[in-house]
Amino acid sequence: MSTALALAVMGTAGAADARVGADWVGYGCPNHYNAVRCTQEGINNSPTPHHVKVDGIVGPETGDDLLGWLGSGCDSYLPTTG
């Protein structure tokens, strides 16, 4: 799962309806279990895994992208833009 912490997905995805203000995922962040699990699942479900960029942080924009590739259940754990 540590790979998920080092990855941020760049690309386009559908609108997200997550909890604004959810903790970021990455180095120096709280890294709650479900946030890390959702990050890994989002990367695994990405239709363009070759566009994964390493920057070590899943913030609101990356959270939006990941939620576009996830089913329900992760919308409370990843940060989003709105």
Results as ranks from 00 to 15, higher is better:
residue 3 T to D: 07
residue 3 T to W: 02
residue 4 A to N: 08
residue 4 A to I: 12
residue 5 L to C: 09
residue 5 L to T: 01
residue 7 L to T: 00
residue 8 A to P: 01
residue 9 V to L: 11
residue 10 M to W: 03
residue 10 M to G: 05
residue 11 G to S: 14
residue 12 T to A: 15
residue 12 T to W: 09
residue 13 A to Y: 02
residue 15 A to H: 14
residue 15 A to V: 12
residue 15 A to Y: 13
residue 17 D to R: 14
residue 18 A to K: 05
residue 18 A to C: 15
residue 18 A to H: 06
residue 18 A to Q: 07
residue 19 R to N: 13
residue 20 V to A: 06
residue 21 G to L: 13
residue 21 G to N: 11
residue 23 D to V: 04
residue 23 D to S: 07
residue 25 V to M: 11
residue 26 G to W: 01
residue 26 G to D: 02
residue 27 Y to N: 13
residue 27 Y to W: 11
residue 29 C to D: 06
residue 30 P to D: 09
residue 30 P to G: 11
residue 31 N to D: 15
residue 33 Y to F: 14
residue 34 N to Q: 15
residue 34 N to H: 13
residue 35 A to S: 15
residue 35 A to V: 11
residue 35 A to R: 12
residue 36 V to S: 13
residue 36 V to T: 14
residue 37 R to K: 15
residue 37 R to E: 14
residue 39 T to I: 04
residue 39 T to F: 01
residue 40 Q to N: 08
residue 40 Q to A: 06
residue 42 G to K: 06
residue 43 I to Y: 00
residue 43 I to F: 00
residue 43 I to C: 00
residue 44 N to H: 10
residue 45 N to I: 07
residue 45 N to K: 14
residue 47 P to H: 09
residue 49 P to T: 08
residue 50 H to L: 08
residue 51 H to D: 13
residue 51 H to W: 08
residue 51 H to L: 15
residue 52 V to W: 00
residue 52 V to K: 02
residue 52 V to C: 07
residue 55 D to P: 03
residue 55 D to K: 05
residue 56 G to R: 09
residue 57 I to L: 12
residue 58 V to T: 10
residue 59 G to M: 03
residue 60 P to G: 14
residue 60 P to A: 15
residue 60 P to H: 10
residue 61 E to I: 13
residue 61 E to H: 14
residue 63 G to D: 01
residue 64 D to F: 09
residue 64 D to G: 06
residue 64 D to H: 13
residue 65 D to L: 07
residue 68 G to H: 01
residue 70 L to C: 02
residue 70 L to V: 01
residue 71 G to D: 12
residue 71 G to H: 08
residue 73 G to L: 10
residue 73 G to Q: 10
residue 73 G to I: 10
residue 73 G to Y: 11
residue 74 C to N: 04
residue 74 C to M: 06
residue 76 S to C: 03
residue 77 Y to W: 15
residue 77 Y to T: 06
residue 78 L to D: 03
residue 79 P to L: 12
residue 79 P to K: 07
residue 80 T to K: 05
residue 80 T to Q: 05
residue 81 T to F: 05
residue 82 G to I: 07
residue 82 G to S: 12
residue 82 G to R: 13
